[in-house]
Design a protein around this nucleic acid. Structure first.
Lengths: 235, 235
DNA sequence: CATTTTTGTTAACGTAAGGTTAAATGCTAT
DNA sequence: ATAGCATTTAACCTTACGTTAACAAAAATG
């Protein structure tokens, strides 16, 4: 079952600490690639697939947040853990905006890190099955191809969807007939939850409703203060 | 499953280091041919098929980059790993867009090399199966002979394609009706991913579209921010 | 029922990506 | 050297996206 060693990209400029951490992780059966700065980290990231990234925040050439942002552009799903020097509130906040899964203040207990890693891997393992690999949805009379980003109604001309439209509709479809919390879309798609992103999301809901209008069995309902619900009515 | 020992061409002028490295690789079940300079390296390369080349950069008679370029002329697919002295900055390397799969700074950890080799072999293994050996495609009313670089429409006069046109169309055809990521073409064909190569690719997309225009069942669609899709519509 | 909060809708704007064309450069073979 | 390609660079244009703003409507609050 637990076939393949999970691969971790560790980006840490302090050579001592980095090596120690790497060894520790490897002792715990992870495959670890160690990059010494953000620049190198990104190169390594591009070259391979990783199950987790651990990024130091303070680094020369390219700090951890910038690196995370670049990584996110290429891959929306890799979990990221930040290592921060002190409990800087802003740092933490900034980290979550980029879609961090966790953060740790240095110095930290290595066992805690290990637990966090395990938890994240676990989460990903169960998430992935249902979520991550599903790209085709039947939504009433529509077919959504989420990989190629198009929406077809009864085999007619496909409508092209923008990335945001596509992700939002996909998320709604994953929660078909169920509540899709506002906050979920904002953190997953917009990676930030504030007044403006929320407004932006509303704009996209409007766009989707327009697309879906031709099928009156399909509608997006609002649940005030909670989120939205993609409803597919029977014939 | 893991049938044949992978064959590695090692070109390294330092006899001590070269021998040690060769032995180390052979201990890890690779078949290794060791050449002592670029000249000899190229001779050996021509004489056999290799799964990987490891080239020292600094060598008398013919340096690693020059050798790599010659190798590339004969074979666009062999992975190449460069061994460079620590002093050399990445900037210097970037000038040589030979399509290296990786770089290693001497002195390096032999385990790291081994991991890189494994990763590269793995990558190639999954890529190669479907891809590497296919040279004829039916694209709607067209026939593409990718070996001779001919594009024929309904048995008419063949159009000659330039190398880049040909490779790009072939890559699109390999992903027929599916997304062909921009980045894939840039790394595989242009061996570099920047503003200009990207622009260049667009120019070639335009050329291909012009060729394909006579058949209105065939079109190249853009998926904004992702890549292109060669669509072949039914009758 | 007045007021605040949340959502709906449309349009405008800025930025980035892609499309097109032509000129400059590079390459190869004569 | 130079003619004839292939390819890249450049400039310029168009389209696509996403955010923001402004205003309207609906729902909650009290």
């Amino acid at each position: 079952m637990d076939e393949q060693a999970k691969k971790i990209l560790l980006v840490e400029d302090d050579p001592n600490f980095g090596t120690v951490l790497k060894d520790y992780l490897m002792m715990n059966d992870y495959e670890v690639v160690h990059a010494k700065n953000g620049m190198e980290g990104f190169e390594k990231f591009k070259k391979d697939d990783y199950d987790l990234c651990i990024l130091d925040v303070m680094m020369p050439y390219k700090d951890g947040f910038t690196l995370a942002k670049e990584i996110r552009e290429k891959n929306t799903d890799v979990p990221i853990i930040f290592l921060t020097a002190k409990a800087m509130k802003e740092d933490v906040l900034k980290g979550y905006k980029v879609g961090a899964d966790d953060y740790l203040n240095k110095p930290f207990d290595s066992e805690v890190l290990l637990m966090k890693i395990k938890a994240i891997m676990q989460r990903k393992a169960t998430e992935t099955v249902a979520d991550s690999k599903q790209f085709e949805f039947k939504i009433g009379g529509f077919d959504l191809n989420s990989k190629l980003r198009f929406l077809t109604y009864k085999g007619g001309e496909p409508t092209k969807l923008s990335p945001k439209e596509n992700e939002l509709l996909r998320l709604l479809a994953l929660h078909e007939n169920d509540l899709m919390p506002r906050e979920l879309a904002l953190t997953k798609i917009w990676r930030d939850d504030n007044y403006f992103t929320s407004r932006s999301m509303d704009v996209y809901i409007a766009k989707l409703r327009k697309y879906l209008k031709i099928d009156d069995k399909v509608e997006i309902l609002n649940i005030h203060g909670e989120g939205f619900r993609l409803v597919i009515n029977a014939e």
